[in-house]
Amino acid sequence: MRILVCFKVTPDFEMLREADWIAGEGSLAAGPGVQTRYVPRVLNCFDESALELALRLRDAAAGRSSAGPELSAVSIGGKEVEPFLTTLLALDYVRAARVDVGVHVDFAPATVASIVAAYARRVDRSDVILLGCRSGPGDGGTVPFRIAEALGWPCMTEVVELDAPPGGLLRVAGLADDGLLRVTFQPPCVLAVGNAVVSRLRVPTLRDRLARRDVPVDVLPAADLGIEVEREIEREPSRLIGLEAVRRARAGVVVDGRTPHEKAQRLLDDHLKAVIERL
C-alpha cells in the first residue's frame, strides 16, 4: 500500500503581535495578505498528525512482521519546505518531494487540489492520500474533498485513528457529529486527519539523519504535472478580495489585590455580581 502524506508549512501565526495583523498592499490573490516573511515556519498541526499517524501505521505493520505501507510525502512550496522534507527522509519516508509553483496558492484551494491529485496519479501512484483536514492561512477545509472529487475516490474526514489490518484494508476512526465512527475499507481513499491525539511528529536521531543524508529531495515544477498554475488560479471560482484584522480587545480592567482570595473577592464584588444574576 502506497501512502502519500501531503503537508503544508505555514508561518507560526501565534508569533505575530496583534499590531502586526495588517492586510498587505497589492493583489491579495497573488501575494500574501499579511507580512509573515520573518515568522518561523511550522508544520500545519493537522498535517503533523497525519505524518506521525502514517509512521505509526508502518511501525505497527513491522511489529506484526507484515508488509508495511510505503510512505512518501509531498508539499507545495519553495526552499523553506526542504528542511521538513529532509527530516521526513530521515524518518524513512521513501520519497519526499516539493512541487514548485513559483506563486502563492494560499487562497487557491482548487489549484492546490489539482496539483496534489496530479502528483498522486502521475508520480506517486498512491493508494491512500493522507493530509490534515485544513490548513492556514485559508483554513477552508475543502482541499481533501476536492482531491477526492478529482480522483473519484471516497474521502473520510476528521480522522483520529488509523490501522491497517491484514488483507490490504484500512481501519479508520473519525469524529462525526454524533460520535466516533469506525469503518473498514479497501483503498484507494483520501483521509483527512482532524483532532487526533497523536499530534507531534517524532524527531529523527542524528544517526537517522546521517544514514539518509544522500537521499535527495525531489523538486518538481508544477508544469511537469501538466498544470499551468497561473491559469488555474485565474480559473478559481472564488477569490479573496479583502482582509480585515479581527480586533478582540475588550476593557481588560485589571483586578487589584494581594492574595488569590482577595482578588477573587474583588472580582466577584466589583464585576461579577450582576453577570451571575443573569445566569
Binding site: G33, F107, P137, D139, P237, L243, A245
Partner: peptide, 20 residues
Amino acid sequence: LICSRPVYSNHMTGRFELRA
C-alpha cells in the same frame, strides 16, 4: 456573492467573491 469568513487562524476576516 460576497462572503466573509475567518482566515489566518482567526486573526483575520477574509472577504471572498464567488463568481461561478
